[in-house]
C-alpha cells in the first residue's frame, strides 16, 4: 500500500469517525447521556487519530545491523588500501635497486616480493654486470632492504 493510499484511508477514517460522532450527539436527547456520548466520541477520535502509530510497532531499528553495514564498506576499502600499499612498496623497492645499479654503472631489471608485514622478502635481479658490481649491489640490497643473499635471485 503506498503512502498516499494509507493517507487517504486514514483521512476517510477520521471523516467517518467525525460524522458518526456528529450523528450520535444529535440523536442523544438527554444532557447526561450527551456527556457520556461526547466522551466516547472523543476516545474514538483519538484512537483513529493515533492509528498510524500501530504501523511503527512492526518496524525494527537495529543499531548493530547499521554498524555492520558501515564496517563492511570500510573493510572493502581497507583491503584495497593494503593492496595499493603493497604495490607502492614493491615498486619503490624495485626503483631503489635500479637506482643503486645505475649508480654502479650497471643496467638491470628487478622485481621484489614482500612478506605479510610488507617488508621485503626476496628479489630477482636480471643484469649483465660484472662480479664486483654484483657483489656491491648484493651487499647494498642486503643492508638497505634487509633481503639476505640466499633470497636474492640473480640472472
Amino acid at each position: 500500500m503506498t503512502m498516499l493510499d494509507a493517507l487517504r484511508g486514514w483521512i476517510f477514517k477520521l471523516i467517518g469517525a467525525s460524522v458518526l460522532s456528529a450523528i450520535a450527539l444529535s440523536v442523544t436527547l438527554s444532557p447526561k447521556m450527551k456527556r457520556v456520548v461526547a466522551l466516547c466520541c472523543s476516545f474514538l477520535a483519538a484512537a483513529v487519530l493515533l492509528s498510524p502509530l500501530s504501523g511503527l510497532a512492526g518496524s525494527s531499528f537495529s543499531l548493530d545491523a547499521f554498524r555492520e553495514q558501515g564496517s563492511y564498506r570500510a573493510g572493502v576499502l581497507e583491503q584495497k588500501n593494503e593492496e595499493l600499499n603493497r604495490a607502492i612498496i614493491e615498486e619503490q623497492c624495485r626503483a631503489y635497486i635500479l637506482s643503486k645499479a645505475a649508480e654502479l654503472g650497471a643496467e638491470a631489471e628487478a622485481s621484489v616480493a614482500l612478506k605479510e608485514d610488507l617488508t621485503p622478502y626476496s628479489c630477482r635481479v636480471i643484469s649483465d654486470c660484472g662480479g664486483a658490481v654484483r657483489f656491491v649491489l648484493s651487499e647494498t640490497i642486503e643492508r638497505d632492504l634487509g633481503i639476505p643473499l640466499s633470497r636474492q635471485y640473480w640472472g
Partner: peptide
C-alpha cells in the same frame, strides 16, 4: 562506523515517522 550507524538509524526512524505519523498529522 558508529556515527554511520547512528545517522542511518535516525534517518530510518525519521522516514518511518514521516510516512506513518508526521505526514498524516500535517494533513489532519
Amino acid at each position: 562506523p558508529a556515527k554511520y550507524a547512528a545517522a542511518s538509524l535516525f534517518i530510518d526512524v525519521l522516514m518511518t515517522l514521516s510516512s506513518n505519523v508526521i505526514m498524516p498529522v500535517i494533513c489532519a
